[in-house]
Design a protein around this nucleic acid. Structure first.
Lengths: 240, 240
DNA sequence: AAGTGGTCTAGACCACCCC
DNA sequence: GGGTGGTCTAGACCACTTT
């Protein structure tokens, strides 16, 4: 598959990345040891280390001395989930309740979704609409789009099967793992629907978050637009 | 100087970084060859390469096959500009104008700044206040705190010397390089000062961004609070 | 004690740059 | 052709985790 003229460690890096992309080595699990990889690929251990170095830098793998090298499970608890002030000032995070308002296959699909997910124009897509609450207090209204082909089983699952977090449900029900995401944040004003469901005045400031999530194969998998209560909004990132 | 128990490549990395910091090897110039460094430091070439690998990843050095390894000339575009996350409408990032409103040494320092920068209570700090504009349109008001000891030269430099971007100025004038940052975003309402300088109504929604920036030694170096115009605000992140 | 990744060595040959 | 960094090898020993 890989170009014969490339350095061995790059070909090995591609080979490992491919195994991860096709889910042969699953997130959270250890990949073969460096010695094994060296043997099966007929290279020196130093070359294996160099290949793994690159994948660690890219965030696909994680080393643990004495234990092994693991496929990194992107922790969205940490990064995507620290939005709101409700949860304690430091580490502890409670998962908010989730109420699915709509869930159906839809066609045609809005142009910006087709574009973001790189779908053919004729494709079908699933549209989810979801409200998230702490106790009785709604704080986030989400509109989620998924390619029908890969997520069909989501339409038949019960709301209990899906649970309060979607990404684990994608993995459990559809075998799709989210590896990374890009988000854009902006401030907007509440429309009629926002006002009604989030319980704020129309024209009140809200936060709009648009997210495009990717799989390990680097293809877009989910597009999401969330409207959040501005008053309790808090977003935390690390920049490198 | 360096801890005897640390791995050799780390001690070597520190030694090289020190030569650069004290300007013994100047920006744009080549450092000694890998073979020479191996000889003078009595280590194998592989160990030298590993030390240099780290410094290249950190952005202090740059390799050029067949020519040598060079001290990186501080580059506006790549290194520090990535922290600027507020995009113009178009999506491309142009450098906004910068107008420094205040610049002085201050004591005492607010508690949250002392805490964030981990300063002793008796320490002095520099406080900068800055307005950023596109053309004549202000969009961001910043309050910046720096440890006096390491940034004293910033007080005497002319505004032209500092230029439109602070992080390159830190590097140029004070030898301090910013490696990463943590940011927290929230929505707030404009106070009197925000209203006057940003040209919005009082109580209008604004975005508040608090940033703590770290050096390569992983110690906090700068604390910054920015107030941004909510209407044109856009914040883009990649999450892994 | 056995197995894993982390450090380090000493050498080989290759690809590229410059004289 | 001589010097530079880039790739690769084969082995040694260390630090850490698990059994």
């Amino acid at each position: 598959m890989s170009d014969e003229r490339l350095p061995r460690y790059q070909r090995l890096r591609d080979a490992i990345a491919e195994r991860i992309a096709e889910n042969a080595w699953r997130a959270g699990e250890a990949i073969p040891t460096e010695a094994e990889l060296a043997k099966t690929h007929k290279v020196a251990v130093g070359t294996v280390r160099k290949a793994i170095d690159v994948l660690v830098a890219d965030g696909l793998l994680e080393r643990q001395q004495g234990r092994g090298t693991f496929v990194r499970r992107p922790s969205f608890q940490n990064s995507l989930f620290r939005f709101f002030r409700h949860q304690g000032r430091s580490g502890e995070q409670q998962i908010p309740e989730s109420r699915i308002l709509e869930r159906k296959s839809q066609h045609p699909i809005p142009g910006h979704v087709i574009e973001a997910l790189k779908l053919p124009k004729s494709a079908k897509a699933i549209r989810l609409s979801r409200l998230r609450l702490f106790g009785d207090a709604p704080f986030l209204l989400e509109e989620i789009w998924l390619p029908h082909a890969r997520f069909a089983r989501l339409l038949n699952a019960s709301e209990a099967e899906i649970g309060p977090l979607l990404y684990p449900a994608y993995e459990r029900l559809c075998g799709e793992i989210i590896a990374r995401a890009e988000e854009v944040l902006m401030v907007d004003t509440a429309g009629e629907r926002d006002s009604r469901l989030l319980g704020v005045a129309e024209q009140a400031p809200i936060v709009r978050i648009e997210r495009l999530a990717f799989g390990f194969d680097n293809k877009p998998v989910e597009w999401r637009r969330s409207h959040g209560l501005a008053t309790t909004f808090r977003y935390q990132v690390e920049i490198r």
